[in-house]
Structures are given as C-alpha cells and as structure tokens.
C-alpha cells in the first residue's frame, strides 16, 4: 500500500507530511508524560518545587530509588506482586488447560453446558462479586493473605483462558493424540506430553493477559489486603503516596519501578503482547 502515498517522483507529498506530523504528535503525547515521570523520579524537591519542573535533573538522584525501594517498602510490595502474579499465571494456565481439554476433547454429557457457564464468566464485572467475596474470604480466614488475591485473580482469569485454549484446541488435528493412545499413553500423558507443546502459543497469550490483569489490579487488592507486609504494588504505591505526599522524587521512583517489568516484557514481546489483547477482544 505504501506506493499509495508516494508521488510519482518518489518523494513525499504534502498529505504524507501532514499525516506524519499527526502521528508524531500522537507519539509525543504518549511518551512525554512518561519521560517527565522518569525525570522527576531523579530530582529532589528543591528542584521540582523551585521551578525546574520539566527540565533535566541537575544531578541524577539515584537515592530516590533507594528510598522508594527500602524505606517506602516498594521492594516488599514489588516482591509480593511478583509472587501473587506468578502463582496466578501458573494456576490460570494449568486449570484452563485441563478444563478446556476435558471440555473440547473428552466425551461427557455436560461439556457444552460447562463451556458456556465458564464463558459467561467473561461478562462478569468484578464489582458484582466484591462484597460477597470479601465476606466469603473472611469466613474462610484467608482474608489478608496472598490467597485472598491469588484465588480470585485466577478465577476471574480462567474464563479468558478457557476461551483462548478451547478455540485453539478445536483447530488441532486429532491424529497425534490417537497415535499416542495406540502407543499406550494414558490421558495425562496425552495432555501434558502431546497436547501441551501444541498449544504453547495459546499459553503465551494467556500468560500475558493474566500478567497484565493481575499485576495492574487495584479493587480486590485494596479491599482484601490490610497488612502492609502483604500489599501488592498497586495498593503499596497508594499507601506510599499517602506517606510521601510532599516528596515527589521517591514517588516517581516507585511509579517507575512499578512499570518497569511491564515495559521490559513489552520491549521483548511487543508483538505477542499486542496479539494477546486483540485475541481478548475478539470474544466481543
């Protein structure tokens, strides 16, 4: 399609330049607030409040990061988030894999009903379950523990996992499984040794999707966790802002640290990340 915009002489025409200006403005709008964030995370209050709001720091104050990670406990919150997110991803992938396989390939009466029930979960807003879940978790005495986040995160991620896996599995020919069966594999070997490698691309999509939803989640985290030592990063940052309201540097450092893993994942897997979110929309 490129040639569409390139004039006969091979140069750029006016329209092309106009379009590029629009796109560059859009790009700067996306990036500038983030650059500004990184800059003020390296400044001290004198500089921020003394007029140098937008410029480069006169000296790079890496102490802000130390302050955020250690004194403000962002390091602890970060570790909690890594733990909660990792278990959530693993549990979501495992449970979605086993239930999708049973629903799509195995033979039992209620498989269709089960699939529709789980897919209905895609429509449920978290708000709807917030208070009852709070009461249930309290009765089970797991409120204010990692499980109070891992279990709900996993369950709210499973409908998407089942949606993606079941769509993917339908497209895999049955011959490999049949051959494995003739060779004497049992159902568990078939699933984990034959099918699992075949659905690896879907697994990556689900893992990214689950990462984003649990790493960034706020409503459950703010409600179900009380102890400062168990807080995940989203709530932790909220707490930290309360304590450090007047010193922007460490807050900025905390925000940068929160975003860093996501940006790293995105740097290496940007195509895959974009694809995950497109797949997630196709359900609509």
């Amino acid at each position: 399609m490129r040639r569409n915009y390139i004039s006969l002489k091979g140069g750029w025409d006016i329209k092309m330049i106009g379009l590029n200006i629009v796109l560059v403005i859009g790009m700067l709008t996306c990036l500038y607030p983030l650059i500004w964030l990184v800059l003020f995370s390296l400044k001290d209050n004198n500089e921020i409040f003394g007029g140098n709001i937008a410029g480069l720091p006169t000296q790079f104050l890496w102490e802000n990061y130390k302050e955020a990670l250690i004194q403000a406990k962002v390091g602890v919150y970060f570790t909690n988030s890594v733990f909660v997110t990792a278990i959530t991803i693993a549990a979501t992938c495992f449970l979605s894999l086993t239930s999708s396989y049973a629903i799509i390939r195995m033979r039992w009466k209620l498989s269709k009903v089960t699939l529709n029930l789980l897919l209905l979960g895609l429509m449920v807003p978290q708000h709807a379950a917030l208070l009852p879940l709070f009461i249930i978790l309290k009765k089970l005495s797991i409120l204010d523990s990692y499980w109070a986040l891992i279990i709900p995160y996993t369950l709210f991620a499973i409908p998407m996992g089942v949606f993606i896996f079941s769509g993917f599995m339908k497209g895999i020919p049955r011959e490999l499984e049949e051959a494995a069966c003739i060779d004497g594999c049992n159902i568990y070997q078939i699933l984990f040794q034959i099918v699992l490698p075949l659905v690896a691309p879907a697994l990556a999509t689900i893992a990214i999707f689950t990462y984003l939803s649990s790493w960034n989640e706020l409503m459950f985290a703010v409600t179900f966790i009380n102890s400062s030592s168990l807080k995940t990063i989203t709530v932790g940052i909220q707490t930290m802002v309360g304590q450090y309201s007047t010193s922007w540097g460490p807050i900025g450092a905390g925000l940068v640290v929160t975003t860093l893993p996501t940006i790293l994942i995105y740097t290496f897997l940007s195509g895959q990340v974009q694809k995950s979110l497109i797949v997630g929309a196709v359900k609509g």
Partner: peptide, 16 residues
C-alpha cells in the same frame, strides 16, 4: 480436569 475449576468458579464467581 474439570471439578477443581468448576468448584472454585462456583465459590468465587457464581455464588457471590
């Protein structure tokens, strides 16, 4: 394969 998911789904999403 299915029951753990279904039981948790009922407890965490459907019943609430």
């Amino acid at each position: 394969f299915v029951l753990p998911t279904l039981i948790l789904f009922a407890a965490i999403i459907a019943v609430p």
